[in-house]
């Protein structure tokens, strides 16, 4: 059985890509930093706003700051040794595969379904063997048991697959957090399971 020290050593040598630094991305980055992942590549174009604070890993004092800069500061405040490579860009078909070309595992954490589709198509076409973890369906509250991880080859889908964000079904911290933690948990399984000949997926 692996020791905690061995697990930490493995995690410290891994690079994870995160597309989006909102409700999913900021929380995936937070929990992966706590877990001891060595390097994160994060891209987002947005700035922190007051409406983000109901679920995203930012603070009132950071309103108006670029999300990638605010997130990097918060992550370094957890672990000063984590390497955070941030890109303050709007992702598109051309830059996605360049920005994240060196990652071991890719996490999709954008809010817009069309962008989720674009990211999925670019990665599954260009890097068909690179694990890609989607967040799909996490609006509202309750129904924790509907949240699940489904594996389709190198593609992993976290969420309930049905709860779309709307005026009457907003994204709120607990369910968004569950989805983000599910995504981060899949990252750990993908990285650790083969090394320690265990199977904790999904």
């Amino acid at each position: 059985m692996p020791t905690f020290e061995e697990i930490k050593r493995v995690l410290s040598n891994v690079t994870i890509g995160i597309a989006g630094a909102g409700g999913l991305g900021s929380n995936v980055a937070m929990t992966l930093t706590r877990a001891g992942i060595g390097k994160l590549i994060i891209a987002d174009f947005d700035v922190v706003s007051e409406s983000n604070l109901n679920r995203q890993f930012y603070f009132r004092s950071q309103i108006g700051q670029k999300k990638v800069e605010a997130l990097k500061a918060n992550l370094l405040n957890i672990n000063p040794d984590v390497k955070v490579i941030s890109f303050d860009v709007r992702l598109n078909e051309d830059n996605i595969s360049e920005i994240f070309s060196t990652v071991d595992v890719m996490v999709e954490a954008v809010d817009n379904a069309e962008m989720k589709k674009l990211i999925t198509e670019v990665f599954q076409e260009k890097y068909p063997n690179m694990p890609l973890i989607l967040g799909n369906g996490m609006a509202g509250w309750g129904q924790s048991n509907d949240m699940q991880v489904t594996q389709y080859g190198s593609l992993y889908v976290c969420g309930d697959g049905k709860s779309e964000v709307s005026e009457t079904l907003p994204p709120i911290a607990p369910r968004v957090g569950i989805c983000a933690c599910m995504q981060a948990n899949v990252v750990l399984s993908i990285v650790l399971d083969p090394l320690f000949k265990q199977k904790h997926l999904p």
Partner: peptide
């Protein structure tokens, strides 16, 4: 990809995935 939905074929024994993407994150 969507452009090929009319030509890509599925036969007995194939493993097919159809994932519906929804907004939120």
């Amino acid at each position: 990809k969507k452009d090929n939905y009319g030509v890509a074929t599925i036969k007995s024994g194939d493993k097919v995935q159809v994932i519906h993407l929804i907004s939120g994150g």
